[in-house]
Nucleic acid binder design. Sequence first.
DNA 1: TTCCAGGCCCATG
DNA 2: CATGGGCATGGA
Length: 279
Amino acid sequence: MVLNAGDFRLDHTLESGQVFHWQKLGDAAYAGMIGPWPVLVWQERRRLLAQSPAPREQVRRYFALDHKPAEIHATLPDDEFLRPAIAFCGNLRILRQPHWECLAAFITSSMKQVAHISGINGALRRRYGQPREFAQRTFHTFPEPAVLAEAAEGDLREHCRLGWRAPTLKATAEVIARKKFRLASLRKKSYDDAHKALLKLPGVGPKVANCVLLFAYERLDAFPIDVWIERVLRETYFRDNPDASTAELRQFAHTYFGPNAGYAQQYLFHYWRSKKAEE
DNA sequence: TTCCAGGCCCATG
DNA sequence: CATGGGCATGGA
């Protein structure tokens, strides 16, 4: 299928640390899954090409091709720190990921480098997910909550290298599987209520909750603050205020960046990490 | 070898 | 409420 993508950039979108299971094939093609559907996807100028049994509208929705960068940028401040980040990757999109797999992925993300998170995600899929053959390749779905709820903690540690994240991932999978917590119900809640609800899940703190709201629920005002973003904020906007608390950083981010703060966060995150990698 | 990674949890003040 | 230590694992 061929999708009109405008100035969309597939590589920045898939390699900016918001999703962890897409594999790069050769030059510019990626293999991954959109929910239950295997997908091969690549880009030719302003067109996104995909080979997949997925309905076209699902692909469009996942990649958020309906988001309009120009309109988003217009809501963001124009300053010396954000400007180069937007120039670098202002054409990435914040995905609409399936709720559970995004939540589970970020539970496994704490104190892990992006490459490690990808490794863990692949291991979880291969060991517990369902294989799907497509285009001479084997894809794996992300395992359902009930499957991870039944997994042995030792097995999660040994085969997926989860360490101390194993019990929290399993515990949250159990809560979801037993329907003590409905991920779909978060959609109609306010940002504050949804964030507060997520904090009740094992392994979910303020940062993971914000990642889930941003990358799975399209709450574009969510502003996850991880070690990178905290460092960036302190080296830029807070350069003259070294004793600012993390609460002040959080307050600043929401008021300064506004309703699309999540996009600003993702531009800053990806730009600074890419810049650092070049050094 | 030592340091650090898209943090969370729990025990203290 | 805010602060601090501990926590597995693996790559640089």
